[in-house]
Design a binder for these strands. Structure first.
Length: 394
RNA sequence: GAGGGUGUAGCUCAGCGGUAGAGCGGGGGACUGUGGAUCCCCAGGUCGCGGGUUCGAAUCCCGUCGCCCUCCCCA
C-alpha cells in the first residue's frame, strides 16, 4: 500500500470544517481592515529565502525543501510567506503606486523538519503584511487584527512582545552579549553552540544552570537606540490605549533574521499560534526602495485543535423513494426542494433510510412511497421530534 | 540531527513462545412502509516491513519504516 509521505497529512471531516472556519474568520477580519489578498507561488528561487530569512538560520540551513529543476535552477518550496510577498511587492513596484500597501495571503508552507505536535512538513498559514509605514500605529494595527481573529475564534491567548532593535543598535547589543557569554563557563551543550550562532537563544534556555549564568547578562533594553526605544515605548502606550493586554518578554526572539524592532507572539498552551514583527530593511535588502513593514502569520494547523467546530448549517433532507418506478413524481419533489440541502437514499428501504438518517444527522426524512404517489402528497418525518406529517403537492 | 514511547480487524485496544481475540463501528436478521432500545448471526486481519533465533514467533533478537512525545527550531 502506498501511504502518505512523512510529515504530510490529509485534512477531512470535522477537522476540515474547523480548518475552513479559521480561514474564513481570518479573511473576514483582514478584509474588514481593508487588506488585499494575493495568491503567490509555492515555489521561489532558493536565493530569496536565503537572503531574507538568513543563510544561517535553521529554517534555511536544515529545513528547506530545496531542489534543482530540470533547467538547473535552484528552487525551494516556500518555508514561510513574507519573503514571497516582499518579492511580489518589489517586482510590482507597489512602493511607487501608493503611500502604503496592505496585503494578505493564505496557503501551505513547507519545512523539512521532524513532525511533532502542531508541526507538519506541509502546514498552513494566513499572513498579512503592512508596507510603507514606520510609525508604531502600523504595529498596533497588525496586533489588533491578530487579536481580533483569535477572539472571534474564541481561543484564549497570551500576547508577548519585545523589541530587538534595529541595524544600529542590535549588532552592538549582540556583540556585548556574545562577549558576556564568552567570558562564562558551564553552559549546557546546546548553549555552547548557541553562544556564537544564536546568542539570544541562550537567554531562554530551559537548563537551570544556564539561567543562573545568564541572570546578569546585558539586556536589550539598555542597548536600544533612541529611535527604537521611542518606537517601543509608543507602541506600548498605544496597546494600553486600545486595551490590548500584553506581556513584555525581553527574551522573546524570532528565528528569522529579517525582524527589527517589534516582535510579538500569541501563545496558547505553550504553543505559538500566531507571530510576527517588523522588518524595516527587508524590502531594501531584496532590491526594492527602502520601505518599512510589519506583518504576522498564523498557523492554521495549530489553531485547529483549539477551536470549536462550526455549527451545522441548514437542516438536511433525506429522500426515500419507493414509489413503484414513478420517477416523474420524484422529479417534481426534487424541483420543489431545490434550494434545500438534500440527499436521495439510494435504496428503496425505509427502515434503513431512517437508521441512516439518524446516524448522519439528517433533520428530516421525506418519504415518497406508493401511497404518497397515489395520493399526490409526500410524508415528511421530523427525526428529532419523531413526528411526521403529510404535505400535499399542488 | 538527538532521546523516549509505540505499530495486532474500519476505530480503541487485549494477547507477549504453541492453531489470531474483545468492545465499538459495519453488514444481515428478529420487525415485507418507519430510526435512535433490545436480542441473534456474519464479517475473516501480509499481527507495519525485512531478516534472524526456535520443532514452532504477533509474542525473543537485529535492522528498517511510520506515528506520538521531548530537545533543537519554528506558525
Amino acid at each position: 500500500m502506498i501511504e502518505r509521505v512523512r510529515g504530510f497529512r490529509d485534512i477531512f471531516g470535522e477537522e476540515l470544517e474547523k480548518f475552513n472556519k479559521i480561514r474564513e474568520v481570518s479573511r473576514e477580519v483582514l478584509k474588514a481592515f481593508n487588506y488585499k489578498e494575493v495568491i503567490l507561488p509555492v515555489v521561489e528561487y532558493e536565493e530569496l529565502y536565503k537572503r531574507s530569512i538568513g543563510d544561517f538560520t535553521d529554517v534555511v540551513e536544515k529545513e528547506m525543501f530545496s531542489f534543482t529543476d530540470k533547467g538547473g535552477r535552484r528552487l525551494a518550496l516556500r518555508p514561510e510567506g513574507t519573503a514571497g510577498v516582499v518579492r511580489f511587492f518589489i517586482e510590482n513596484k507597489l512602493y511607487y503606486k501608493r503611500p502604503y500597501s496592505k496585503l494578505f495571503y493564505e496557503g501551505p508552507m513547507f519545512r523539512y523538519e521532524r513532525p511533532q505536535k502542531g508541526r507538519y512538513r506541509q502546514f498552513y498559514q494566513v499572513g498579512a503584511e503592512f508596507f510603507g509605514v514606520l510609525e508604531p500605529i502600523s504595529d498596533l494595527e497588525i496586533i489588533l487584527i491578530s487579536e481580533e481573529i483569535l477572539k472571534r475564534l474564541k481561543v484564549s491567548y497570551k500576547l508577548h512582545i519585545n523589541s530587538i532593535g534595529c541595524r544600529v543598535c542590535r549588532p552592538k547589543y549582540l556583540e556585548e552579549l556574545k562577549k558576556f557569554l564568552r567570558e562564562r563557563e558551564g553552559f549546557c551543550k546546546d548553549c555552547q553552540r548557541r553562544r556564537e550562532k544564536n546568542p539570544l537563544r541562550v537567554l531562554d534556555c530551559k537548563e537551570k544552570s544556564c539561567q543562573v549564568l545568564v541572570e546578569d547578562a546585558p539586556k536589550i533594553d539598555d542597548y536600544l537606540c533612541k529611535e527604537c526605544k521611542e518606537h517601543y515605548q509608543k507602541l506600548k502606550e498605544l496597546l494600553g490605549e486600545f486595551k490590548v493586554e500584553f506581556y513584555e518578554n525581553p527574551k522573546l526572539v524570532r528565528g528569522l533574521d529579517y525582524y527589527t524592532k517589534t516582535v510579538f507572539e500569541f501563545e496558547v498552551e505553550g504553543l505559538t499560534v500566531l507571530a510576527g514583527g517588523r522588518y524595516d530593511y527587508l524590502v531594501e535588502e531584496l532590491g526594492g526602495i527602502p520601505t518599512p513593514a510589519v506583518g504576522f502569520a498564523l498557523g492554521i494547523d495549530r489553531l485547529v485543535p483549539l477551536i470549536e467546530p462550526p455549527k451545522r448549517e441548514e437542516e438536511a433532507y433525506l429522500l426515500v423513494f419507493f414509489g413503484n418506478g414513478n420517477y416523474r413524481y420524484l422529479q417534481r419533489i426534487l424541483n420543489s426542494l431545490k434550494p434545500k440541502k438534500f440527499e436521495i437514499y439510494p435504496k428503496a428501504n425505509l427502515k434503513k433510510a431512517l437508521s441512516f438518517a439518524n446516524k448522519e444527522g439528517f433533520k428530516f426524512v421525506v418519504i415518497i412511497g406508493e401511497d404518497e404517489v397515489k395520493g399526490n402528497y409526500i410524508t415528511i418525518k421530523d427525526m428529532q421530534r419523531g413526528e411526521q406529517k403529510k404535505v400535499y403537492m399542488l
